[in-house]
Nucleic acid binder design. Structure first.
Lengths: 341, 341
DNA sequence: ACCCGCTGTGAATACGTATGCCCTGCGCTG
DNA sequence: CAGCGCAGGGCATACGTATTCACAGCGGGT
């Protein structure tokens, strides 16, 4: 089957005593084929294990019935690792794709310079899903190109910083950050350090920082720039950044990490420095990756609804492919309190 | 580009003043095209952002230049979750696919009964990669069908139990289990419980159990059937199984979980029962998923080389597609000692 | 001077499906 | 009984690429 003796719609047609187009119509459910004929054809097709040839069908119909999932992460020394938060989305993305009748192509960005247009131009996929905490200023030009080419795509990111470039799905990072701030203040924390990039290169992290600042302001406090250290989203970056923070010698009683991966590194650095969590320092992350509930102590964090996010991403893209206009969507961000605060 | 004004090889041909076949030949690097002509064509193609239409190319060549990755897990109540161990392989699989010039289609099994042949028969993919800790007796029939159809595929599993069905890549589960046993004995443990299925429905788990038994036998001990409880590979299953084990009231001083997910559940159950790890009970897992180093205490486990495994799976499959014979491969399993023992 | 062979390219076609258009017959209406 | 409409299905073709075959031109050897 897979090799020499490929079954085609002509074979089915011959056996059913009809023409090839009738087979095609019957299997696609065209109403101009009588029920009797359709049933006969379906039976034969099933028996011969016939499957529509995807390449031929795509070529003729001009659609691939396939979506492409592209990960957009800053290249890390230890590559071939994907951020667990986005990996968590994979399950619901796969499931929703299957429900909608689409296949999913998956890829990294690093190896090809024109990955972003390749999938669209070569008609490998009908639309793109972009995921990742990569440097927005770096990949903005590529996203602009997608828009210019009228490629259908959705991306997970900061709705606030969408910049009119495509449809964006994201959680309410600012509200999430504010919830963290209020929670820490409630816990009598006053000196909140922030570990993570807060520039417009990383709009989601920036929004989280702004939310924290909102909450501090509400409480009559101000964010101390001396308590902000940059870090990309990796455990190692969080570890090193927290070490730099500690080395500054500016006192802090709590630490808000822009992502859980950063928080993992922060916990390690605090532990090595002999700072007990949460007694000496309360720690909060963002994302609620699976590992967050396993750390020592379990990590208070802001959960994003990755299951819903995955489904929404796919559904939005499918609607876009169908030619419908699509809107941004902001999903809720929910504080999950655990023992680290 | 993506929509109305698709660039074809005819457009390039017209601009270059040659025929369409020459364009095709030039871009595929055929030596019968003169260097001058090829360079001219390449320049024009690049300028117009031309990409070979994948569907047309596949149809003509009869190959999709695509591999399919299929997850084979027993359906869990909480689906849309993929075993983190296999997720860890995804990075290296993606990378190796890209290096070899293949795209990767990804899918779950649950939604379609004939997923296993669909990708091959419909020519969506040239070969299949099967991953998962699913019930082997359940999907064995499907694998046999793949063999019968001469579909190219590789699977990650138990080489020892390959049953002549396709090419299997796997780690040395038995040696890994033996290493665990020797390590526990060295730590003066005598009563080792095993949590996990050990039947031939789950050959990898069974091999791990056998390895443990080997080590016990070496030390003049015997595995106590009373200390074996079944569990599928999930945190919840591990939790419940460990509760059952404790309820039996048969003393044990150490616990070997057939997988890290099971071990996570075991740690939770032991914790709830007030059994301190490792003082009262030493705990060992298998797989070395990312979470293993984060548990409380960090989990001693057996690391599988998932990065290499992913690369080997892809390379083996690619060779198989090229028509070369391929062999099973057993990768090493390495004990990683952490604080749980 | 002739033929051979090589290089570079064009013409024709096949891959398998989906669809626009046309044709046939049958039942029904006036 | 003629004509009309509609259901059912065949014919031809298009999708864009890759490959086989044929062929033109040219240089060299005898």
């Amino acid at each position: 089957m897979a090799l020499s003796d490929k079954v085609t719609s002509f074979d089915i047609a011959a056996l059913a005593g009809v023409s090839q187009p009738t087979v095609s119509r019957a299997l696609r459910g065209d109403k101009t084929v009588s029920a009797a004929t359709r049933l006969r054809i379906e039976a034969i097709a099933r028996q011969l294990n016939y499957k529509v040839d995807r390449a031929a069908s795509s070529l003729r119909k001009g659609e691939a019935r396939t979506l492409a999932l592209l990960f957009f992460e800053d290249p890390l020394p230890d590559d071939s690792h994907i951020n667990p938060f986005f990996l968590s989305m994979l399950g619901s993305i796969l499931k929703t794709c299957a429900l909608r009748g689409y296949d999913l192509l998956t890829s990294f960005q690093q190896l090809s310079a024109d990955w972003h247009v390749d999938y669209a131009d070569s008609r490998k996929a009908d639309g793109l899903i972009l995921l990742g905490y990569g440097d927005w200023q770096l990949y903005r030009a590529r996203v602009e190109q997608l828009v210019g080419q009228k490629t259908r795509f959705v991306r997970y990111g900061s709705v606030a910083a969408s910049g009119g470039l495509g449809t964006v799905i994201g959680c309410d990072n600012r509200a999430g950050g504010a919830a963290v701030g209020r929670h820490l203040i409630e816990r009598k924390r006053r000196r909140v350090a922030f570990v993570g990039e807060a520039s417009d290169h990383y709009p989601e992290f920036r929004d989280r920082y702004r939310g924290l600042a909102d909450a501090l302001r509400e409480a009559g406090l101000a964010a101390d720039p001396g308590l902000h250290v940059d870090a990309l989203s990796s455990e190692q970056a969080g570890f090193e950044a927290t070490q730099r923070l500690i080395a500054r010698g500016i006192g802090f009683d709590s630490l808000f990490a822009a992502s859980d991966l950063i928080a993992l590194g922060a916990l390690r650095a605090l532990d090595e420095a002999g700072l007990v969590v949460p007694r000496a320092v309360s720690v909060v992350g963002f994302d609620d990756i699976p590992a967050a509930s396993l750390t020592r102590p379990p990590l208070t964090t802001v959960a994003q609804d990755y299951a819903r996010a995955g489904a929404v991403l796919v559904d939005t893209l499918v609607r876009q492919i169908a030619g419908e206009p699509t809107d941004h969507l902001t999903l809720p961000a929910t504080l999950v309190v655990r023992a680290s605060t």
